[in-house]
């Protein structure tokens, strides 16, 4: 794992989806066994480019997610490295039994892509806003669950996950561009968190975040630094298998944890981190995330305020958790 942090809160010209498409173009070119199955949402993530380049291996299954998941498992049984895509709400909820039995239980490592995670579903509203997609897949034994942050991370992880065999993986993907965190060429290891900021024993707490909350955490870091409060920031893009060693180390060294996620934290990253700490190193934890609520319609900026998925909320929780030490 080697990475370069940019973290200037600037938007990437390249959308996250372009990271997936670019990685897949390279993978499909190099390896005839790589296939993509879509559910009438190619226009949404630009996988039409895959269809144009590899018409017989970029397959549109229509609006039929459960069948698509089963087809993906069958393709995997014939030796294909298969990705299946729909919006996060549908590639989880709508195809879950098929993902569980036909794929995971049968040890057919389908790679599942869920676009528009959490509040990124914005104008599609509550019916399309998954705050539970990762939780569903975290409940599947041996599954890999990933919430990536930018083009560079999506590109790198698409390649890593494609090589995984025999276990399913679920990767969320922001459709449109989001803030650049990493420089090109950064590399990541599945199951290993990335420590983005640390200041040795000055750190009073650790923020463990992923996805869109990484940039909010970096903003919180800066504002807290101005107030003389030093914190550690970790990008925990892999929710499962979670990096237990890094969680325990951060807890031991900083004595307080704040988690931040674009998901229901009672069953998501927050819950996963709290479970590790309860078992291995009891430590005060505060969670930033959606607290067991349904989604709603609106601009992403409005929704981030409505569900308190902001740097300000992270700052408030850092102060609170430090007070609990």
């Amino acid at each position: 794992m080697s990475f370069t942090l940019i973290g200037k809160h600037e938007k990437d010209k390249r959308n996250c989806r372009d990271g997936y498409v670019q990685a897949m173009l390279e993978l499909m070119e190099a390896d005839k066994s790589v296939v993509h199955v879509d559910c009438d949402l190619m226009n949404c993530i630009n996988t039409g480019k895959l269809k144009a380049a590899f018409p017989d291996r970029a397959i549109n299954a229509g609006i039929a997610e459960a069948n698509a998941m089963g087809v993906a498992a069958g393709l995997t049984a014939t030796g294909k490295k298969t990705w299946m895509h729909s919006f996060g709400c549908f590639s989880s909820r709508r195809a879950f039994d098929q993902a569980f039995m036909s794929a995971a239980y049968a040890k057919l490592g389908v790679k599942i892509l869920g676009s528009d995670p959490g509040v990124c579903a914005a104008y599609n509203g509550g019916t399309h806003m998954p705050f539970e997609d990762c939780a569903l897949y975290m409940s599947v034994p041996d599954a890999i669950v990933i919430d990536p942050v930018d083009y560079v991370q999506v590109y790198a992880l698409t390649k890593k996950l494609t090589a995984v065999e025999g276990r399913i993986s679920y990767m969320r993907m922001i459709r449109k561009g989001f803030t650049t965190v990493y420089a090109d060429g950064s590399d990541f290891e599945i199951g290993k968190g990335v420590t983005l900021k640390e200041n040795g024993d000055k750190d009073q707490a650790t923020i463990i975040a992923s996805g869109i909350m990484v940039d909010e955490s970096l903003k919180a870091y800066e504002k807290l630094a101005e107030e003389g409060i030093s914190v550690r920031v970790i990008d925990m893009f892999t929710w499962k298998p979670i990096d237990e060693d890094l969680i325990v180390k951060s807890a031991k060294e900083t004595g307080a944890i704040v988690t931040a996620e674009n998901h229901n934290c009672t069953v998501g990253l927050g819950a996963a981190v709290a479970r590790v700490l309860a078992e291995k190193c009891p430590t005060p934890v505060e969670m930033v995330g959606v607290h067991d609520q349904f989604g709603q319609v609106g601009a992403q900026s409005f929704l981030q305020e409505a569900y308190k998925l902001t740097a300000d909320e992270i700052i408030a929780k850092v102060k609170k958790v430090v007070g609990r030490k």
Partner: peptide
């Protein structure tokens, strides 16, 4: 589709 609307997509 505006904030807190009763008319979602």
């Amino acid at each position: 589709n505006k904030p807190s609307t009763n008319f979602p997509s």
